[in-house]
Simulated assay, not measured.
Amino acid sequence: MTTTPRIAVLGAGYTGLAAAKLLANRTDGVVTLVNNRDYFVPRMRNHQVASGRPSRRLPLRGLLKGTGIRLFVDQVTGIDAAAREVVLAGAADPVGYDLLVYAMGSQADLATVPGAAEHAYGVAAVEQAERLHERMRTAGTVAVAGAGLTGIEVATELAETYPDRTVRLVTSGALGAQLSEPGREYLHRAADRFGIQVLEHATVGKVGPDGVLLADGAHVAADAVAWTTGFTVPALARAAGLAVDERGRLVVDSTMRSESHPEIYGIGDVAAIRNRDGRLLRMGCGPGGLAAVCAVHAITDREAGRTPKPLRVKDDALCISLGQRDGILQPTELDGTPKGKVRTGRPVAAFKRFILRTTGVVFPRYPGLVAAGAAGRA
């Protein structure tokens, strides 16, 4: 490593932006941040954007002012791990690095099911959520495919905002499978209250302009289809010859360092993140934020000649909004198994609003405050 290391961070979502700003503040490295757009978007609010609430686009140059971080607004087309260079679509010269933080995030998987890319509306990107909102201006019926956290939040948000429309929630499993029995019962009551038509154990085989065709041949009519079933990650790590898992996520150790290329760290959804006892964390903003803090600590510790501490996480929790005035908070094991007492109602909705404000307003501006709060866990 050179005296002044070159640190490249790929991706300016929750984890990448935080990592870049923390590294610029806590190391002597020259930090370069690469992102495909010149603004940060609080992705956790996309279900609200789909229902018509305004999106928030925070200009990256304003968020990076005074940090010394170099910003490249460009599309990453490749990583040359041997040369330690990042290839960009619009730049003649690659971005060289001594350390690379890979934080490219995930996107809606619209390629697995026929017709999804042509006819469904994802909500993983704010632009997709805005297109769904435009479609909801005239759609009388919407089918939400997938009943994970995103699917539940999209379905309840749309049902609350458009009480005169028909909302159908289609899931290949049971509704609330990730919740305890009291949590599942509460979710079913909420769906009934919103008038959501729930189709359980229904696998989508094809998406068309008039709805979805299930694997058993049944047709679910809909003017619009919101796609929340599954996420995929960029193929950059696999194409670069880095060690990845079956989903293409970077395989990292408990300090977020690549197991095949020690000069590369992976954080957020693009990494298969494990804590110190080897248990895999779920994809999501919460685990991703802890991973970002852990990676920064590991980089600074190694820079100072110290042995870095592994990620320390014992448990997790799911905080699900059910419209604007209701919610479910479910404590879980790291593998997603529900445990403990589930919390519900308006207090959870208020807590979710606090989370959205923290991650969407405070976090991108002052990641050090969030890092301090996470210090005991990462």
Results as ranks from 00 to 15, higher is better:
9 V>S: 07
70 R>G: 00
335 D>A: 07
190 A>L: 01
81 A>G: 03
58 L>P: 01
378 A>W: 01
104 M>F: 07
89 A>C: 12
78 G>T: 01
106 S>A: 08
373 G>E: 14
10 L>K: 02
188 H>M: 02
22 L>I: 07
310 P>D: 09
312 R>T: 14
158 L>K: 00
182 P>E: 13
105 G>Q: 09
230 G>P: 15
285 C>P: 05
198 V>F: 07
305 G>K: 12
257 R>I: 14
324 Q>C: 00
361 V>W: 15
167 V>C: 01
140 G>Y: 00
125 A>D: 12
122 G>T: 05
12 A>Q: 02
13 G>Q: 08
4 T>Y: 15
224 A>P: 07
186 Y>V: 00
168 R>E: 01
337 T>I: 15
268 G>F: 05
282 R>T: 03
209 P>D: 00
252 V>N: 07
50 A>D: 02
32 T>F: 11
204 V>A: 02
59 P>D: 03
357 R>Q: 11
6 R>S: 03
91 A>N: 09
99 L>Q: 11
65 K>W: 05
115 G>A: 03
300 T>L: 08
142 V>C: 00
347 P>L: 03
45 R>S: 11
177 A>P: 02
350 A>S: 11
209 P>I: 04
243 A>N: 10
313 V>Q: 09
341 K>T: 13
369 L>C: 03
312 R>N: 14
84 R>F: 14
13 G>R: 06
199 L>D: 01
177 A>S: 13
147 A>L: 03
117 A>C: 11
373 G>Y: 12
317 A>Y: 02
361 V>C: 08
66 G>S: 08
188 H>T: 07
